[in-house]
Design a protein around this nucleic acid. Structure first.
Lengths: 143, 143
DNA sequence: ATTGACAATGACAACCGTTTTCACTTAGAG
DNA sequence: CTCTAAGTGAAAACGGTTGTCATTGTCAAT
């Protein structure tokens, strides 16, 4: 149910068996690539509409979810529960976000967390640990 | 806007000017104290109802929010956007949560993060940094 | 003890992001 | 070209949360 096959199939995602290449998916992925910030599903739709393309909100939600499942985008929740998406660079990283303007900076984690999280997991008998670190503060502009 | 004054006022919260001591608030705080896990607003209400007390859902939401603002409870969001609350121990801490059963363990942070987050914030010109670390994994029971 | 002002409550409706439904369209294999 | 299952999207459903507003309760002042 959850897991999508998604093997290595060249560099074009959505080539998994039973997945079709449609205009909508192409447009959404392209648009995401141009945005550096975290955006909501609605913003994606608006951004695309502003370019003259139209994609149904339902499709935006479904596509973003698929991208998230495939690990192509990061997802995070605002404190109102809204989901924000962002095309993520390769590899593991964390975020420093301005509480006022939402400016987000991608960070490498502190060198020691990997070890710490693993040993903590071991200590409590947990497997497959993942860690998320979010820093928030007030950026120089919003000071 | 974010920061709440919350001075030392003895050990009774809800003593801020213009705040009254009501049955509902007492009951909610008491019930929270008996639950070690993260719970939703609805669960709080049900738990209280099961004890024979009745509190309106609206009041539960408002009270939990007030407690969260006052720093008396931790808030986190499930991946469905639902808010979960938990009476937190004193001081700063993090969580290790089982992705399957939601079992949550309270952790002290790795020793170096404080320094790291401060220096990272400095580097990017951010003030008032806060950090959140969430570890997730599969606990031994859910293996 | 009584009063009165205003905080608090709670049933209910509104909100809003997200998901489901379902009839219609379309990509792409044969 | 044809066929079929995947994809689409408008609209409705959903579910957690927040707003509304008439009523109730607290507590300081009397």
């Amino acid at each position: 149910m959850a897991a999508v096959a998604g093997k290595a199939l060249g560099d074009s995602a959505f080539s998994a068996p039973g997945q079709r290449g449609t205009r909508q998916r192409r447009v959404i992925r392209e648009w995401l690539g141009t945005s550096a910030a975290f955006v909501s599903a609605q913003q994606v739709r608006e951004g695309i509409a502003a370019k003259g393309d139209a994609v149904g909100l339902t499709t935006v939600y479904r596509t973003l979810q698929a991208l998230a499942d495939a690990g192509e985008v990061d997802v995070l929740r605002t404190d109102t529960g809204e989901a924000l998406y962002r095309k993520c660079g390769t590899g593991h990283h964390h975020h420093l976000t301005c509480r006022s303007c939402e400016l987000t900076i991608e960070l490498a984690g502190p060198p020691s967390v990997e070890k710490w999280s693993q040993s903590t997991a071991d200590e409590f008998g947990f497997n497959d640990v993942q860690h998320v670190i979010e820093l928030s503060g007030t950026c120089s502009n919003c000071r």
